[in-house]
């Protein structure tokens, strides 16, 4: 085992792919000479050269589309977006091309491509740079969406995402790049579509992904001090989503709190809540609980931003109201 950061885990996975498959290349804005807005590809240009580490003009629609075409022609592009908010500029390419092209060609055209993008609020970047559009992309059949919360999953998921023959959105919680954690030195992958039970417990199921997971770890600690045993699940993959693991857990515990760090309305937990209600409604000992960020454009001011975000106190309060725990 080695202790590395999420950033180092992503770097490791990318370098492995570049080393082992000549068809893998990376493109995006300022990923080469600059080294990447979040320094993920720092030093890559020197090591792999400009053919494989391609700096692009600031033209998201053009280079996302070019990534899709190159994937359809047999390459393995990893496209970096500086922020998942910038996906909006290339949304037509992601949805109408990457996701739809296989279906509308009757299965003739595949798009083995990864789009990496930082996501999430908490760094005072204001309304345009703090959004979490992995939630929107989960609605689109043809795409897969993953969102690691720790170095081990970050490495396992970047490996499986690059290997996957479909377009995969790899959403990186921008606040977690520096998070350290243990990573197995032996090669492994994390299966896309498989949630991870981080803590086994009996009294309540807590579910989130990405930067919701550090919050749930704290919530679980606090509940433990109150004598409440919680089962903590990291979805890891938002599309496809592992409904089975969550439902089995809820059927065991009879209680659940689902945490979105994105805005509450239309978040992935709304979808998961519907599934839990349908499949495990009879097992619930009280209301199915959901916490998400406020339905506001993200404010710049730190106090306002923190107030808008999901938080440990908000989660605990919901659990107290819902289950008197």
């Amino acid at each position: 085992m080695s202790e590395i950061t999420v950033r180092q885990a992503i770097q490791k996975g990318l370098m492995e792919a570049l080393d082992s498959d000549p068809n893998v290349f990376i493109m995006g804005e300022d990923i080469g000479a600059y080294g990447g807005a979040y320094a993920i590809t720092s030093g890559f240009l020197e090591k792999y050269g400009p053919e494989r580490i391609k700096d692009t003009p600031i033209s998201e629609a053009a280079f996302i589309g070019a990534g899709i075409g190159s994937a359809a022609a047999g390459l393995k592009p990893v496209v970096e977006l500086m922020s998942i908010s910038f996906s909006l500029v290339g949304f037509d390419q992601i949805v109408n091309m990457a996701a739809n092209i296989r279906y509308m060609s009757g299965g003739q055209v595949n798009v083995p491509m990864v789009i990496r993008a930082p996501t999430g609020a908490g760094m005072q970047l204001g309304a345009t740079h703090s959004q979490s559009f992995e939630t929107w992309l989960c609605e689109v059949p043809g795409l897969k969406v993953v969102a690691p919360s720790n170095p081990s999953d970050a490495l396992g998921l970047i490996r499986s995402s690059i290997k996957d023959p479909n377009p995969v959105i790899y959403a990186e919680s921008a606040g977690l790049y520096g998070l350290k954690g243990e990573v197995n030195d032996k090669y492994y992958e994390v299966e896309i579509g498989k949630a991870d039970i981080k803590i086994v417990g009996e009294d309540i199921t807590l579910v989130s992904y990405g930067h919701g997971m550090p919050m749930l770890a704290k919530v679980s600690e606090e509940l433990k001090s109150r004598g409440v045993s919680s089962e903590v699940i990291d979805l890891r993959s938002l599309s496809p989503m592992d409904y089975k693991t969550v439902n089995e857990s809820v059927q065991k515990t009879g209680r659940a709190l689902l945490l979105d760090t994105a805005r509450k309305t239309g978040g992935v937990m709304a979808e998961l809540a519907a599934s839990v209600q349908e499949s495990s409604g009879d097992y619930l000992d009280g209301p199915l609980l959901r916490v998400g960020s406020e339905d506001v454009p993200w404010p710049y001011n730190r106090k306002l931003e923190q107030h808008a975000m999901s938080s440990v106190p908000k989660i605990l309060k919901q659990i107290e109201i819902g289950y008197s725990l």
Binding site: G65, G69, A72, D92, Q93, N96, M97
Partner: peptide, 28 residues
């Protein structure tokens, strides 16, 4: 579509096929 003939669509969002085409050229 006919991928076997490198006929890569038929695209119905005006102008959206242009970046896609650049990708095929990039692959070559």
């Amino acid at each position: 579509f006919d991928a076997g003939k490198n006929f890569m669509g038929g695209h119905a969002i005006v102008g959206a096929q242009i970046p896609l085409a650049a990708g095929f050229a990039l692959a070559s």
